[in-house]
Amino acid sequence: MRTLVHLSDLHFGRVDEALLAPLKACVESLRPDVVVVSGDLTQRARSEQFKQARAWLDTLPGPQIVVPGNHDIPLYNVVARFFTPLVKYRRHVTADLAPEYVDDEIAVLGLNTARSLTFKDGRVNREQIGRLQERFNALPEGLTHVVVTHHPFDLPEHFDEDELVDRAPMAMQAFARCGVDLLLAGHLHSSHAGNSAHRYKIAGYAALVVQAGTATSTRKRGENNSFNAIRVEKDQLTVERYSWQGGLGIFELASTELFRRNGDVWESTR
């Protein structure tokens, strides 16, 4: 079994400082094999915010798979936005925009969906998806395949389809061909877990799609700060959501959902 801790939407520059130490303690207690951070490390892509995010991430266990979000691209500096959109992210966080972690049970690949031409929406292109498919296909059989993005490929019921990453149907067809099991994303500041079968009608295939809420931002959008821990077994995935309990000053287990594989379809056991 492997344990993934899934954090998202840290938004340094607008964090609740009181959450940082309890979150670190909770993450450490889970003894993760991989820590995943699905974008929006900063609020306004400023150097000092990236430095703060990197310094805090350095206190967490490794290895770590980190991808950028739309807030990690400058908003008001138009020249930087269009000509050097991720230069500060690459300088202070990681130069690798397609990070990966592979062992004898899991393969976790990061995919950059942040783009200069949109203020908040995300996009993937055929070259990115082609490289990801080739990488998964080159790995030994039997691994659980995980993709990490900032922008989501599926949505909770109350969100508009405009929130989906652009070219999602094209990407999902490729994910089916290379056997992607689990899609991790953020962006919405809303927790969710479910399979992709309702939105994408791909015969014999449904990935598990897991959204993380915001771990540390003050912009909670009606949901307590939260993060996910995902227990990965060969044909079973357990999604645990940890939620901030302000009165207790801790992150506490709030819900547990179990999903099992039937062929290439991940289904809830409820």
Rank of each mutant, 00 (worst) to 15 (best):
G142M: 06
R167V: 01
T218P: 00
V147N: 01
F175Q: 03
A212S: 15
L184I: 15
G179H: 10
A185L: 08
H198S: 15
H145N: 15
L182I: 11
D181Y: 09
S190E: 04
E163D: 15
P156W: 09
L143D: 05
L182M: 03
D162L: 07
A171D: 11
H151M: 12
S190I: 00
F159R: 15
A206V: 12
G213C: 13
A174V: 04
A206F: 09
R177H: 07
Q173T: 12
Y205C: 08
L188R: 11
H192D: 15
A171V: 05
H198I: 13
P169V: 07
D166M: 13
G179R: 15
S191V: 06
A193F: 10
Y205D: 02
V146W: 01
G204C: 03
Q211W: 11
D181E: 08
P156H: 08
R199K: 14
V148Q: 05
A215Y: 00
R199P: 05
D154V: 09
D162F: 05
P169S: 08
M172Y: 01
A207I: 14
S190G: 00
L143C: 02
P152H: 10
A176W: 03
H145E: 00
T218Y: 04
E161C: 05
V146C: 01
V147L: 03
L155V: 01
A215G: 00
G194P: 02
L143N: 02
H158P: 04
